[in-house]
């Protein structure tokens, strides 16, 4: 059951967004998020939404996959909207018992909802179109300049990719250990907090022992295959920019300039502001 959780939920298909260099996608996502926080009027959000719609379309990932990602944070979204809606002081429109909804509250809540939704869909476009492996590669290369501060960039990236490989294996193992202990009458579900924490011991001990054994085996296997850190290593799949990547950077710059100018210009401010 647990093994089907795909981390980073990559959606495998062929598209021009999938083929982009992970650095473009990482940088692009960051810029997009920054742009969302710069807007002062609705036109900016409209442009951002249109741009995102275009990217989603190009990525060939069905829109419902994006919405699926939204479900998990729906709760958070509702709280934010609720707080803004009821707790913003200003011109009262409706009064419910002690709470009142103000004009400013509605505007702020709507802005927050739009901003958060775009932010989440925007970043899930990145995770849906980039394999976790590619993502770590991209991060490793983008963070390479930090090496001069003696940060072990390669090692951290290697650790992340190994973790990604072993998470499904360890999840499956957790499932099996749980079953083995349930078969011996273990109860993971009832009792108070203390009792439940205690019930985890028969699960955690075998899991830790197994994880350590795996780590030990893996280290030996890596050494046997001549692994000795990032020094002198070549890459099977080196990251190289292609024309499409430069083009994408161009599009990004254009979007940033255009949307931020539009989004901050009071000329476009809609009647209600």
């Amino acid at each position: 059951m647990l093994r089907d959780i795909t981390l980073g939920q990559f959606y495998p298909t062929e598209s021009c967004i999938h083929r982009l260099d992970p650095r473009v996608k990482l940088g692009g996502t960051m810029l997009y998020i920054i742009s969302l926080f710069c807007f002062k009027n609705a036109a900016g959000y409209l442009l951002a939404a249109l741009f995102l719609a275009l990217v989603v379309r190009l990525s060939k990932v069905p829109f419902r996959f994006m919405v699926k990602g939204m479900k998990s944070i729906l709760f958070l979204l509702l709280i934010t909207v609720g707080f803004n809606l009821f707790l913003t002081p200003g011109t009262p429109l409706v009064s419910l018992w002690k709470l009142q909804i103000t004009r400013e509250g509605i505007i702020l809540a709507a802005t927050m909802a739009v901003r958060l939704s775009l932010l989440i869909i925007g970043s899930s476009v990145m995770t849906l179109t980039t394999t976790p492996n590619h993502l770590t590669d991209g991060m490793e290369k983008m963070l390479r300049p930090l090496k001069i501060f003696r940060l072990p960039v390669h090692e951290v990236a290697m650790m992340m990719s190994i973790a990604l490989r072993f998470i499904p294996i360890l999840l499956e193992e957790t499932d099996r250990i749980m079953k083995a202990q349930i078969a011996r009458g273990a109860d993971f579900e009832s009792g108070n907090l203390f009792k439940r924490a205690k019930a985890m011991v028969p699960l955690l001990v075998p899991l830790f022992i197994s994880a350590f054994r795996r780590a030990n085996d893996l280290a030996m296997a890596m050494e046997a295959r001549c692994y000795r850190g990032g020094e002198g290593r070549t890459k099977m799949k080196p990251l190289l920019y292609t024309r499409a990547d430069y083009l994408a950077y161009g599009v990004l710059v254009f979007y940033m300039v255009f949307s931020i100018t539009a989004g901050r210009n009071t000329f476009y401010v809609l009647p209600w502001k």
């Binding site: 099996r176 250990i177 079953k179 083995a180 273990a186 075998p206 197994s210």
Partner: peptide, 24 residues
Amino acid sequence: VFQYPEHQLFEIDVFSDVCFGPRN
């Protein structure tokens, strides 16, 4: 009894481990 004993052994000694089932 599952395939790998490593998936169920967890106590500090053999005897306590075998006691786990009846105690439950």
